[in-house]
Design a protein around this nucleic acid. Structure first.
Length: 503
RNA sequence: GGCGGCGUAGCUCAGUUGGUCAGAGCAUCCGGCUCAUAAUCGGAAGGUCACCGGUUCGAAACCGGUCGCCGCUACCA
């Protein structure tokens, strides 16, 4: 059994879970479930990033200590993922002891390698923000947030000598083509490296809410060494070498396009310095916009994913997110689009297919599902459907995977039209057609498991299959002809009641 | 400014290395069916493949140019 591990970014606890978090996490979950279906031993990691100035400030504002504050937000992410049916195997918080151990170990390794050195960070600093700004960010030399003059400050920081890694990074990526997906995002990342790399600071003395440097406790690790290291500390780096060796390197880091630099440039350089193997892959997603714009309170387009789950169901939401967007590209969430997808694909195609099959089996076969024919024309449709579905998941294209699966649903609807079993008297001819349709639905149930697991199980049970569909294994379970004659087929309420589009 | 990408049916987009490549889904219209959630199946309509020029026996696809749009360009989806 092969190991397959993947990660989402860890989410900063200065905000509650929103549509963007849900988007990346759902894609990760579907991919994790696909690999479990393939029989891989999967480790799917997500978590929360809890250090830093903003948390310290937010905690102060709330009259809490930083950890008390983080303790109020982190559970909200866990609850959100539970509600979205996210099957993460672990949830790491950067405030956990195991993470402290991992960060300390990585920092020490890079320090020992001579790639972390004391230097002076200088820049223009807004006292109100307690942040540095670049000249581009300043507006007429004023802080863009407070509109007040900034001061020139110098601060003693430890720096990671990223500038030493430009050639090594380019060489590594050249010898690992396809590591970053999709290609156009990979090109952007390579462009960043070619344009020259500057050292970056890895510590602050002005900050207290963080992990102290092992060799100089006056300094606290600054964001990147802290956050990125979660991917390793979660699987034992610094605490359990055996476990770490089992799970590292990770197969895929799923990330958003805005953190490419840190994951595809900083992170591999840090690992090189420490003498640790690099990740095998990066999946770089676009943003899920809302009504064509990035979500923001001011434009009033903020979408709460949990509200949508209440409205359209967890699988309705998951399906929409996975089917409507092309991974890598920005997607656009619209409520109309959500309902249109739901009606056409889930209610009309899949849900209605299940309904009509159950009814005909009830009327013509006494409610007992007949076995399929080995030479059904649907067998070839099923074969190409699962192969195309598999290929799409493996190239990180959920929307294509679903499209491929849906081709079998369409073929099955057409098959029923061509044979019109409802016109025939009960008998062998009808049994054959309905057995084929049920077999197609069995395979569909398997193939939709990663995307819409709850629905997959419901279909599985309605057609009378025993046990958990998630226990099925591809490719064996995708092979034609396994629906056992004699199973009880259940008519029931529509899986996806059609929804009225708002006028 | 620099680097990169895009402009194909009303909409969202597929179109490997140039030769049935002019396609899919949704939407629209017509017809069939009535087992089914007014669902489904079939068919039709609709595109000078942004524009101009070039290479070629042949280009949506290769080259040059024009117009338009977009992404990335150092701190967290």
């Amino acid at each position: 059994m092969a190991n397959f591990s993947l990660t989402t970014p860890i989410y900063y606890v200065n905000a509650k879970p929103h549509l963007g978090h849900a988007y990346t996490t759902i894609i990760g979950d579907a991919l994790a479930r696909w690999h479990r279906l393939m029989g891989d031993n999967v480790h799917f990691l997500t978590g929360t990033d809890e250090h830093g100035l903003k948390i310290q400030q937010a905690a102060d504002d709330a009259g809490l200590t930083p950890i008390e504050f983080a303790d109020t937000i982190a559970p909200q992410f866990k609850e959100a993922w539970a509600k979205l049916n996210i099957s993460n195997d672990d949830f790491i918080r950067t405030t956990e002891p195991r993470h402290y151990a991992g960060v300390a170990k990585l920092l020490q390794a890079c320090y020992d390698a001579g790639d972390i050195e004391l230097d002076v960070y200088s820049g223009k600093y807004c006292v109100a923000c307690e942040e540095y700004f670049t000249d581009e960010e300043l507006e007429d030399d004023l802080c863009p947030i407070h509109k007040r003059p900034v001061e020139y400050f110098e601060e003693e920081n430890y720096f990671f000598r990223l500038s030493r890694f430009q050639d090594r990074l380019l060489e590594w990526y050249a010898s690992h083509p396809g590591a970053m997906t999709p290609d156009f995002r990979a090109n952007e990342a390579l462009g960043l490296i070619r344009s020259g790399l500057r050292d970056f600071s890895v510590s602050r003395t002005s900050l207290t809410w963080g992990i102290p440097l092992p060799w100089d406790s006056k300094h606290v690790a600054y964001v990147w060494f802290d956050a990125l290291t979660n991917y390793m500390s979660a699987v034992g780096y610094g605490t359990d070498d055996e476990r770490f060796n089992e799970w590292w390197p990770v197969d895929y880091h799923l990330i958003g396009k805005d953190i490419v630099r840190h994951h595809c440039v900083y992170w591999p350089a840090m690992l090189m310095s420490a003498g640790i193997e690099l990740p095998k892959g990066w999946g770089i997603g676009g943003w899920l916009l809302s009504g064509g714009e990035k979500m923001s309170k001011t434009s009033g387009n903020v979408v709460n994913p949990l509200d949508l789950v209440d409205d359209i169901g967890v699988d309705g939401f998951r399906y929409y997110v996975l089917a409507e967007t092309s991974f890598g590209q920005d997607g656009d969430f619209t409520y109309e689009g959500l309902l249109t997808r739901y009606n056409s694909d889930l209610a009309n195609n899949l849900g209605n297919l299940l309904s009509r099959v159950a009814t005909v089996v009830d009327k013509k076969c006494g409610g007992i599902g007949p076995s399929p024919a080995a030479d059904s024309v649907l067998a070839t449709a099923a074969e190409s459907a699962w192969q195309d579905t598999a290929a799409a998941w493996h190239s990180l294209q959920p929307s294509k995977a679903l499209e491929a699966t849906w081709s079998l649903i369409r073929a099955t609807n057409a098959y029923l039209e061509n044979n019109e079993p409802w016109k025939s008297e009960p008998g062998e001819a009808v049994d054959r057609v309905m057995g084929d349709a049920l077999e197609a639905l069995r395979i569909v149930a398997v193939l939709i498991t990663p995307a819409i697991p709850q629905t997959a199980q419901a279909v599985w049970e309605r057609i009378g299959m025993p046990g958990q569909v998630s226990d099925q294994r591809i490719p064996a379970a995708a092979a034609w002809g396994q629906y056992p004659g004699g199973a009880t087929v259940t008519k029931g309420d529509p899986l996806f009641p059609r929804r009225q589009l708002p006028a």
